[in-house]
């Protein structure tokens, strides 16, 4: 079933890359863009979002704070934190939040692997 993916990144380019890759992998899925944590929370209020892709390094609340907020509000939502910051502490914190670490630059392969896992998780939750 088609899903709605929220892409949160302060870089328009990064959002373009993510949404285009998503369109290629799942042409029938919807992509909702947000430029920061506040916009992300507003988007979440305004529509049904199934999956989130969140940039780590953003002005205002960073990706980890946003991922923690999302996790509290939506315990079962598959969340990926997308970053080139491959430090052990970052990866550990992402995992503590029950989110998936996806390295930047975002590749179709990495996004596809995350989305497959996310879709399975959502199906399992729905059962």
């Amino acid at each position: 079933m088609p899903r709605t993916v929220l892409v949160v990144d302060d870089s328009k380019l990064a959002r373009m890359v993510a949404c285009k890759a998503l369109a290629k992998i799942h042409p029938d899925w919807a992509c909702v863009e947000a430029g920061d944590a506040t916009q992300a929370m507003a988007a979440l209020q305004a529509q049904d979002v199934d999956i989130s892709l969140i940039d780590l390094n953003m002005p205002g609340d960073g990706g980890l704070v946003l991922a923690a907020d999302l996790r509290r509000k939506r315990p079962n939502m598959p969340i990926a934190v997308v970053t080139a910051n491959i430090q052990d502490e970052i990866i550990a914190r992402v995992r503590e939040l029950g989110a998936t670490f996806v390295p930047k630059p975002l590749t179709e392969e990495a996004l596809s692997a995350f989305l497959t896992g996310a879709n399975l998780r959502l199906r399992k939750v729905a059962q």
Partner: peptide, 29 residues
């Protein structure tokens, strides 16, 4: 685009510095 590419590049560079000093490296936008 330049900021985003720099963000990716500095993320990698910070990971190298983290390996050298053994402590997390915090980055600005």
């Amino acid at each position: 685009a330049v900021a985003e590419i720099a963000n990716i590049a500095v993320g990698r560079a910070a990971a190298s510095l983290r390996q050298i000093v053994g402590h997390e490296v915090l980055l600005s936008v």
